[in-house]
Amino acid sequence: MNQPIISIKNLNLYFGKQHVLKNVNIEIPQNKVTVILGPSGCGKTSLLKTMNRLVDLHENVKISGQVFLDNEDILKDNVDITRIRKKMGLLSQKPSPLPMTIFNNVAYGMRINGIKRKRKLRPLVQKHLIEANLWDEVKDRMNDPASRLSIGQQQRLCLARGLAVNPEIILADEPTSALDPLSSTIIEKQFVELKRDYTIVLVTHVLRQARRIADYIVFMYLGEVIEQGPANEFFENPREEKTKAYLKGAFN
């Protein structure tokens, strides 16, 4: 296994009195699809939101432990959060296009980061829409509001928007749960394509999806990491009892 891009050490997360993540230790390999797997309510989403520090928005949050991204602890107080977040594109459960045109959705992140000229933006927007496999469908209506796209297209638009800030990692929180099977397949295919240039962390509770695209698996249950390892080992020879039970469908 090559050098991990994210390594999480002894992470504990509390919402008020609720202990959401219990002593989590994870290493996420670079340029691979890592799937965080587990039944709903196991803390997968909270883990993801800790990685780009969106948990900061919650109230009464207590975090301890360390999350290293490129050997830098991002949980330290003096870290520039916006820089950290820029390194990770987030894809949420329900696509959340911003209230503006298709073009401006993709250009948004670049504008925030200082690229303002349309002449410079146009080819970049095109490039990222191609990366997200959406360009052909929207190239003639770049000035339509993003809300007019289908849900599946919206999710790919969000992907393109995330890619546009040149992240190293793509965090995806059950990105296909709101989509039809066809749109889901397109997104999954795209992830496999994208892992050449990006590291992908995908949260899901769909076992089949994990089988289809995972290189590395982290299995979580009730806030704890039960087992982690390369995907084929995980599916062929699970070590833990809980994992075996889960693979047999006991928790669904």
Partner: peptide, 24 residues
Amino acid sequence: EQYEASLSLGATQWESIKHVVVRR
């Protein structure tokens, strides 16, 4: 989600409010 989407693109809180919340 829209607010969070803007934040995760590296926008500051105020930028997200200005461009997303107020606009919306």
